[in-house]
Structure formats: C-alpha cells, structure tokens
Nucleic acid binder design. Structure first.
Lengths: 336, 336
DNA sequence: TTTAATTAGTTTATCGTTTTAGCAAATAAA
DNA sequence: TTTATTTGCTAAAACGATAAACTAATTAAA
C-alpha cells in the first residue's frame, strides 16, 4: 500500500513522530512545539494528504468512535428517517455508526447488542424488545452510555427518548369527542412494551376526563401474533357486536391501513359511516381521499434528541438521567 | 476496564499468546498445537467469555472487516430494504457496515466516498451520482473492490448490479399496447444517470418494435429541479396539448403518485379516462382503488446480488467484471 | 549411532498511533 | 555565578492482536 504514516511525515518534515502526532491532535501548545515547526509539519501533512490511521488510533486510545444503533426496522419509513438523521449527526461529530434491525425479534435483539459490544461501540441507542430488559439493566450498571428509543422499561432508570404516546392518544380522542363522536373505539394490538400501553391509557383518560358516563370505552385488542386476515375478521366481529361505534382510532399506522382496507371492502364511507383516525402518519394517509387525521411523530426531533443525548453521555458531561417525552403533533385532515 | 486480552487467557492457560491466537483462528493444525492444549485453551476462553479485540486485529492484519454502503436515501423504502438486506448478509459474513445517504447531492457523495476511504473500508457498494465518475475511475484503477448499484456509467468498466430498466419499460409498454391503448405517454424526469434513460429507451423500443407508425410517442420530461407544483402544471399542459393520450406510464413511483394526485384533482377516472402505470412499486399503489400496475424491482434479489458480488471481490476470487442486469417483475392490478 | 525430519510449541517483530517520561538548551531567579 | 525553571523537542513504551522465525524435544531414516 502507498498509505503514508506518521513515520513518513516525520521523516519528511525532519521531526519525530511525536511532534507530528502533537500537531495533528492540536496539542502543539501543550507539547511546546514552536510555531515554525508546527507550520512545517502542517505543510508536509497537506503535501502528502495524510490522514491518521483511525484503527491504530482506536487501539491506542481505547476509543472506537463508533456508535451502535439498534432499531426495529430500517426499511420502514419511520425508522429509516431516524437512522438517516442520527447518522448525519454522528458523522458530523466524528462518530461512525453501526446499525441493525431487530424486526422485534427478542433473540435477534440480544444477539445484536452483544455483537455491538464486541464491536466496541462507545454507546448505544436501542429500540428494545421485551427480552432486552436484563441486558439493559447490565449495561446501565456497567455505566455504558445508552439511550432507549421509542419505548422504555418503566421500572428501569435508563435514559430514553420517546414520544409522549399518552398525550397523543389523549388529544386525538378529545378531538373526536369535540367533533361530536359519542362511541369511539380504540383498536390496538397487545404489546408488552409500554408505548402501546400508553396509547391505550391516553384514550381511556380522555374518555374519563371529559364525560359523566356518556362515553363508553370500546377497545379491540388484536393478539400479538394474529395475521392480517385474523385482524380483519376480529374487526368485523367487533363492529357488528358494537353497532353504536361511530369512530375508529387505530393504534398504529399499519392497523389504520388495515382498517381502511376493511372499510373499503365493506363499501363504507369515511367520515360518513365512521370517523377514522390513526396513530403515526403514513404516505397513504396523506394521499388518500379523504386524508386521514393522525397523531404524527416529529421524527427529526426524536432522532436529534436521541443522538444528542447519547453524545452527551459519551462525552461524559453530567450524569443526570436524560428522559425525554416528546410531544406529538396532531395532523387534521378530512376523515373526521 | 475488565476486558480480558490474549495475554490473560495465555497466562491462565499456561501457554503463550501465540498459541491462544492460533487456537482462536483455527490454525492449531498449522501451528501444530496438540489437541489437549487446544481443548485447555478453548476452555479458558469460554470461562472468561473472551472475544478478541477486533481493533487490534484490524491493525495487525490490515483488514478492517468493514464495508461501505452509499445509497441515495435510506429513509425511502426501496433503499431502506436494500440496506437492511445487505446489512444482514454482511454481518453474517463477519463484516460490519458503514452506510450513508447522498440524497443525490453530488458533493455529498464525494465527501462520503472519501470518508469511507478514510474509515478504511475494504470495499464499497455505491449508488453513484454523476459527480462520482472521476473518483470511481480512480477506485477502479486502484483495484478497490467496488460495486455500483442501481445505476452505472456506461463508459466505465465497473462492476454493477442494476435493474434491467430497459426491459421493464419495454414490457410494461407492450402490456399497455396489448390492452388496446393507442396513445401511450411516458412521463419522466431528465436525469443524467443511465437508469432513467434506459426506461425511456425501453418505452421507445416497444413502440417501435410493435407498430407500423400507429403508435406515436408522447414523452413528457420534467426538468430535474422542478417542484411538484411545476410538474403538476406541466402535466396539465401536456395532457391538454395531447388530447389523444389514453395511457400514462410514469417513470418513477413518486411521479406516479403525483400523477394520481393530478388525476384526482381533475376528477378523472382510472382506468376509464386514462390507463395508468408506474415504475417502482409503492404501498399506495397496492392499497389504492384501483390498484396501480407497476414495474416492480425485486429488492431482496438486487441487494443479495450486490453484497454477494462485493464479498466475492473482497475475497479476491477471480477478477472478471461482475455486471448484473436484474429482470424486473411486472405486477398487474386494475389500473389498466 | 548419527543425521534428518517432525512435533509442539515459544520468542520476537510488527501494525500506526498516543502518551509518559526525559533530555538539552535557553532563560530566569537567587 | 550557581541553581531553578521554562522551552522545545524526542525516545521509548504501550494498546492487543498476528505472523515469521526460531528452539527443543521427540521420532524416523540412514
């Protein structure tokens, strides 16, 4: 290889490698290198277009300048955007990123965390699955810089950045109430992680806060492992058993899409037969006729807060817990 | 740090670090280490849950076991899926990935390639922008393992994995002809890269091959920098100037979506007023009523071929050029 | 019996940095 | 003038692995 090293630069500049190293790391003051020598060395560096070998540097300093990012699924627009935003900030700050998707597979999540540890990442941002709890406890104990994303474990004192799911569901339910709907159904999926539970809580809280028994709660929870066909069937059953229901609030965007398919197959009208809203925005909700009102996540903000928090932890500034509940923004379209 | 190193294992097992290293790298045969010692060492490794320091290994071997992946935009489902698939295969093969998005920004693409070189990636998969041509030429000359993805430079002898865009456009145009459309418009965007040009070529080839002057060609090319509003306006103008047009073939999915918005705003019917098809699949095309027929890219296959090719190059097996034109699959829905 | 070959390891150099400790010369203080 | 301090720089150790060269003991061949 024609790669130039410190040694080559040192020889060409007629100084020791230590001197070159000091110049590169802007420690010439501390190393008491004269301005003349600094200039000379810099010139030689430029001449050879020298860049330090980061692997050697990592070995010596013990810092990999690598961050691990574990998401649910990068191929999905939400996580893809998160990834892209985090990546950009990380690079700007001199860190590289290694990332992977769990697809909500508990074992895979554990394997990935271990793999990242092995890759000597300096810190981790993780969208955890339930299975991660013990290992996350360990990581916290060992003082590893760690930020949970999208969901967290209420019992654990971890750093996290999540959407304020409760608030989002609460406000959207209020919106439906104000629009005159009396029998609002919340359609969700049973999930062991707290983000889904908080959405349900927000819905229930809205009903409770605003009413004197007028507003009954209708909750349909799909089993976690149910297929799309199962869900359509369950939804059909549910709506037949609850004919009074006049508005549907779907707990995630893919449930919302499923709902739309159902509505269409039954030739029902939105907002005529049902008011329809969903958690999480999606292209389809924007482009459909009518557009679907949603509780949208401020994706860039979530990503920025996460990486900001992690860099803060890595750089060891302060040791307070960072726990951010980011407010969602409601987007009103024509489906209500 | 409580990190155990080769030295610790060696001490505990009562052997030299070389012996441990040989065991770890499965070179005990070549190093003539007795089975008994191998077993003892392995036991100690397991006991300490030792994993070699990959940074030290990289420094010594000169291999970073890192692959660079430069895509157009990971937040978009197509590239996100590509990323995810490549990542999985890479990890399985012991490589880690560092990736980034260009957003089709020429300067950014160049910066990213340089950054990846600095990170000492062993090979690169790149979705190039026009600006990349010179640096790619250099990379080829320096024998860097390199696979272009999604598009390539016809003049350069590079490895690549791309969709057979010509074939896709050709077949879809034929499909429209067979369905009885006589005045098919191809709506595309001017792009300096060859993938868009090949789509246009495929469309023109189909018209030429199948007809004796019966089938005129109608091409609308949006300027590269036009806004969505510009495009809608241009489309409106174009259709008014060409009232005979009875089918619209959009060159990319986001143009297709734009087309659908236009159709909707004008209260036109598909396939009544216009047959409508698009390149690249999209959720919306599946879920709309009617579903839109598309030329779909076999995403997993494209990703697998790319990473397979790169690993092949990195492992230095054979030096023939790898140039894959992957056939698209046409998905027929109700829009024709 | 002597020599050669094989076996089972070890010693040492090295990858390219950073960092600690140290050495002269120059300057300041006593 | 002698001693202490500062200035300007370098030598050498270390990070944790791999790989080439080497040693000593045993076995096989001559």
């Amino acid at each position: 290889m024609n790669k130039v090293s410190l040694k080559d630069i040192a020889k060409d500049a007629g100084v020791s490698i230590t001197t070159v190293s000091l110049v590169i790391n802007n420690k010439s003051k501390k190393g008491r290198i004269s301005d003349a020598v600094v200039e000379r060395v810099k010139a030689v560096i430029k001449k050879h277009n020298y860049q330090p070998n980061i692997i050697a540097r990592s070995l010596r300093t013990g810092k990999s300048t690598t961050i691990g990012l574990i998401l649910e699924d990068v191929s999905n627009n939400f996580f893809g955007t998160i990834y892209k935003t985090i990546e950009q900030t990380a690079y700007k700050s001199g860190y590289k990123l290694i990332s992977a998707s769990t697809d909500n597979d508990g074992q895979r999540a554990l394997d990935l965390i271990e793999m990242m540890e092995h890759q000597q990442v300096e810190g981790l941002i993780i969208t955890p699955t339930l299975s991660c709890k013990p290992i996350i406890e360990q990581l916290i104990k060992s003082n590893k810089p760690l930020v949970l994303f999208d969901r967290y474990f209420p019992g654990l004192n971890s750093n996290y950045v999540v959407l304020d799911n409760l608030k989002g569901a609460f406000e959207m339910t209020n919106h439906l109430i104000q629009k005159g709907y009396k029998n609002i159904a919340f359609i969700t999926i049973t999930s062991p992680m707290n983000q889904m539970q908080n959405r349900l809580k927000g819905y229930k809280k809205a009903l409770k806060d605003f009413t004197k028994k007028e507003f009954p709660s209708y909750v349909l929870e799909f089993p976690y492992e149910s297929t799309n066909e199962d869900k359509i069937l369950l939804l059909d059953q549910f709506l037949k058993q609850n004919p009074k229901v006049d508005a549907l609030f779907f707990g995630t965007n893919y449930l919302g899409i499923l709902g739309i398919e159902y509505i269409r197959s039954k030739k029902l009208k939105v907002p005529g037969d049902y008011g329809l809203v969903s958690f999480d925005d999606h292209d389809l909700f924007k482009l459909m006729e009518p557009g679907i009102s949603v509780v949208a996540q401020p994706i860039q903000l979530l990503a920025n807060e996460s990486i900001k928090a992690l860099l803060h932890l890595i750089q060891g500034e302060g040791s307070q817990l960072i726990q951010k509940n980011i407010s969602p923004s409601l987007i009103f379209r024509k489906s209500v």
